[in-house]
Nucleic acid binder design. Sequence first.
DNA 1: TTCATTGTTCTATGTTGATAGAACAAAAAG
DNA 2: CTTTTTGTTCTATCAACATAGAACAATGAA
Lengths: 108, 108
Amino acid sequence: MAVLYHHPAPEDITLLPLLRAVADPVRLGIICHLHSLGEANCTTLLRGRPKSSMSHHFQVLREAGILQTRVEGVQHRNTLRLDVLEDRFPGLMTSILRECPTNLSEKG
Amino acid sequence: MAVLYHHPAPEDITLLPLLRAVADPVRLGIICHLHSLGEANCTTLLRGRPKSSMSHHFQVLREAGILQTRVEGVQHRNTLRLDVLEDRFPGLMTSILRECPTNLSEKG
DNA sequence: TTCATTGTTCTATGTTGATAGAACAAAAAG
DNA sequence: CTTTTTGTTCTATCAACATAGAACAATGAA
């Protein structure tokens, strides 16, 4: 897993890929959970889904510039890049996060 | 064309369909053009695309609550529902419209 | 009525992308 | 070294959706 993640620079984050990434129920869920948890690894957010699926979604979010991944031992910890996103597209993430269900623990 | 359009009520506009609708290059283009033109019919925004495709995209935008269509004679005039959207998802459309190319006439 | 314009509906096609199993890779623990 | 945990990569499959042609419907003009 000595994977070298590529996190796009702020200038390279563009609207369309970002909207595409966000326009998916699973990924929207990931975003909301990351927002409430602050940081989380892939396995934490599986809900019966296969790891390969989640890994895919994290990759999409990463390449869209929405989250960044930090390797710590065996785990890959993910965080939202809120500052960067707010700087790049003011108000966008805020308006999306506002729609997150308040009680995320209902399903885990 | 005595089509009865269904425009969802503000409460029935939900985030995921809205994001889905917006996460498409053609529809993003339509949105930007509508924003700069104020109002436009389908044919005005064709750029070599078949009418059926555009009609489809307008339908998606309409059902997502992004625009409303007003029939005037043979033409169907479309407008963004900015007030409703701003009320429902504050800041979202604003942050998207901010990314519209300033010179929309480059390609039409 | 006849024709032109506008846009929808129907249908088919093709492409993109989500899902998921299996094999693999890396790190830490035993 | 072996095992366990974590997550990626590869591959295949399936579903959703964009594209587009053709026929149709409605309005207005000639």
